[in-house]
């Protein structure tokens, strides 16, 4: 997503999972591929030449990381902004705690919603506990999507806001620094 909040955020309860899923050879492959695969007939061999492994080993390790869930998927990641999704809003909702899991799953399936998360309230300043990123071709379309969400949430929802981003002040894709995940050696996108 080109301009959405927190695509690189970890789920809180999983975040304690040790990064030890990655041995040094896995880590070398991650570092060599996180900006993208070489677009050549044998990308694994090309990566292997950069990290000193055979193409077979690179492919096997990629498959293993995918099986373990370290790699969620390998994809041609689209830039939705360039595809005309120029409007996006972070919609935040104050939803009944007893209903939020059921409603969160329903909201996540609504068209235009990308990320949908439960987060803690911080009353009195921040009563909202459900976050849904909305994407449309115009602000009006985002507002219409929010209306659909409002209707779906019904009486379980007490209040909501849509926060539009007025400026991107920094945006970096996940960069596993050479010193370890989340280290200070992240590069700008």
């Amino acid at each position: 997503m080109s301009d959405s909040t927190c695509p690189s955020e970890a789920r809180a309860q999983d975040a304690a999972t040790p990064a030890g899923h990655l041995d040094p050879r896995d880590r070398a492959i991650v570092l060599a591929t996180q900006a993208g695969l070489p677009l050549v007939p044998d990308p694994w061999g090309a990566v292997g030449r950069r990290v000193g492994m055979s193409g077979d080993e690179v492919l096997a390790r990629m498959q293993a990381m995918a099986a373990r869930g370290v790699i969620r998927r390998v994809a041609a990641v689209p830039n939705h902004y360039r595809l005309g999704y120029v409007a996006n809003g972070m919609s935040v909702w104050d939803v009944d705690d007893a209903e939020i899991d059921r409603l969160g799953r329903e909201v996540a399936a609504i068209e235009g919603v990308s990320h949908c998360y439960r987060r803690p309230r911080h009353r009195p300043h921040w009563p909202f506990n459900l976050f849904a990123m909305l994407h449309g071709h115009s602000r009006e379309e985002v507002e219409r999507q929010a209306e659909v969400l409002r209707a779906r949430l019904g009486e379980a929802c007490r209040d909501h806001r849509i926060l539009y981003s007025s400026r991107i002040l920094k945006k970096t894709g996940l960069r596993l620094g050479a010193g370890g995940p989340g280290s200070d050696t992240q590069r700008r996108d």
Binding site: D14, A75, V77
Partner: peptide, 11 residues
């Protein structure tokens, strides 16, 4: 064009 990492497992 490349891998999407599960950040929860990377810190």
């Amino acid at each position: 064009v490349g891998p999407v990492f599960d950040h929860a497992r990377a810190g």
